[in-house]
């Protein structure tokens, strides 16, 4: 295992207390904004867009379940990966780093920082589609709701310190 930082337990517990339905709606809105701005994500998924993905930050007490009915993302927070086709799990810092292109997914897999279970092809398709999109979560948030993005800046700064991963696209590869 590499030295990827673990989310501080108080923050993890705090995240666990968030009411799941409104948090799911917020994440769905963000995912839809990302999909609208990066339509190539869904096209790269091909028929794997029909899969149900569990994104499992192992240092958080919730699992994000991603579906794309009709090519439109929906995220549901739940306590485990029940009812999903594949699970991608790792520390929140590993998942953030992967989304932002700061680390290589295979390298995280070799080091056991990333674990894939279930439908490997669907997980691989999602990873490759996200990597190609060159995502920047803060930029996406800014596009979705500028006032919210401004309000969340201190929270994001705290998350960046906690995860050790910048919540924007990795420099040098964008």
């Amino acid at each position: 295992m590499t030295a990827l930082p673990t989310l501080a337990p108080p923050l993890s517990r705090l995240a666990g207390l968030l009411p799941k339905p409104p948090a799911s709606v917020a994440l769905t809105l963000l995912a839809r904004r990302i999909a609208a701005r990066h339509p190539e994500i869904v096209s790269r998924l091909g028929y794997h867009a029909g899969a149900t993905f569990a994104l499992d930050p192992t240092d958080l007490p919730v699992v994000m379940v991603l579906t794309l009915p009709g090519g439109v993302p929906r995220i549901r927070l739940q306590k485990d990966d029940a009812g999903t086709d594949c699970r991608i799990s790792g520390k929140l810092s590993a998942l953030f780093a992967l989304v932002h292109g700061a680390v290589d997914g295979d390298a995280l897999f070799f080091s056991r920082d990333l674990v894939i279970a279930g439908d490997t092809a669907a997980a691989l398709a999602l990873r490759n589609a996200i990597d190609n999109a060159e995502l920047d979560i803060m930029e996406e948030l800014q596009h979705l709701a500028p006032p919210l993005a401004r309000a969340l800046r201190p929270v994001v700064a705290l998350l960046e310190r906690q995860t050790g991963v910048a919540l924007h696209r990795a420099s040098g590869v964008n």
């Binding site: 292109g101 700061a102 680390v103 290589d104 997914g105 295979d106 390298a107 990873r127 990597d131 190609n132 060159e134 990795a170 040098g172 590869v173």
Partner: peptide, 10 residues
């Protein structure tokens, strides 16, 4: 070719 842009860059 199956690796990420992070691998490629490094």
């Amino acid at each position: 070719r199956q690796r990420s842009r992070s691998y490629v860059a490094q």
